[in-house]
């Protein structure tokens, strides 16, 4: 079973992008599109989009950087740890739940650290990796996606993103406790 999973995962990881190139560009050739000319035409938007998101990403990452460096996250984890233990969430994984929406590299670091200390197949290791897989870096997505469209007033996007994150984290805790505890 393990090997089957691993084979599928590896195959998709290796083949998906080349297959997409073949399918998309090949379809263009079949439909007599001038593939090279059209590709270049589309590609030239890449620069302006990437540059347009810079101010949004600077604003967001600086705030997140300050918050992470201050140690406020440790403080929150220590304060809320006893509460979340009641719902079957080990305090160690709380740092993961807080870090996940803020920073992709930060939550990757937390996950790696937890696996090193507790082992990847321990309850904490499985829960941390499920939490990582159950959500995206909300604030990064918010800054980059809205930045590319020049959106400054995000309306209800932040509460929606945080509700999605909270639901993902709670579901991860619940399902891991159900299956692995």
């Amino acid at each position: 079973m393990t090997d089957v999973f691993r084979t599928i995962v590896n195959t998709v990881a290796v083949c998906a992008i080349p297959m997409m190139f073949v399918l998309f560009l090949g379809w263009g050739v079949v439909k007599k599109v001038k593939v090279y000319e059209v590709f270049v035409e589309g590609a030239k938007e890449g620069f302006t989009t990437a540059v347009r998101i810079i101010p949004y990403l600077v604003a967001m990452l600086v705030a997140i950087g300050i918050f992470r460096a201050s140690g406020a996250l440790d403080l929150l984890t220590r304060l809320l740890g006893p509460v979340t233990t009641l719902i079957g969430m080990p305090p160690e994984t709380l740092a993961m739940a807080f870090m996940r929406p803020l920073s992709g590299s930060g939550s990757l670091g937390v996950m790696t650290e937890l696996m090193k200390v507790h082992g990847p197949d321990s309850l904490i290791g499985v829960m941390a990796s499920t939490m990582y897989g159950s959500s995206e870096t909300t604030f990064y997505v918010l800054a980059v996606y809205f930045g590319s469209a020049g959106i400054r007033n995000t309306r209800h996007a932040v509460p929606v993103g945080l509700i999605a994150d909270a639901a993902g984290m709670l579901a991860a805790v619940w399902v891991v406790n159900l299956l692995f505890h």
Binding site: M20, F21, L23, F24, L25, W27, G28, V30, K31, V33, V35, V38, F39, V40, E41, G42, A43, K44, E45, G46, F47, T49, A50, V51, I53, I54, L57, L61
Partner: peptide, 24 residues
């Protein structure tokens, strides 16, 4: 991060443009 996105952005926007023109 933003500058690093330029290359991969250009690549996929180019591929998507071809797929769009081809009707896929």
């Amino acid at each position: 991060i933003s500058i690093g996105l330029i290359g991969v952005m250009a690549l996929w926007l180019g591929v998507m443009k071809v797929a769009g023109e081809a009707g896929l």
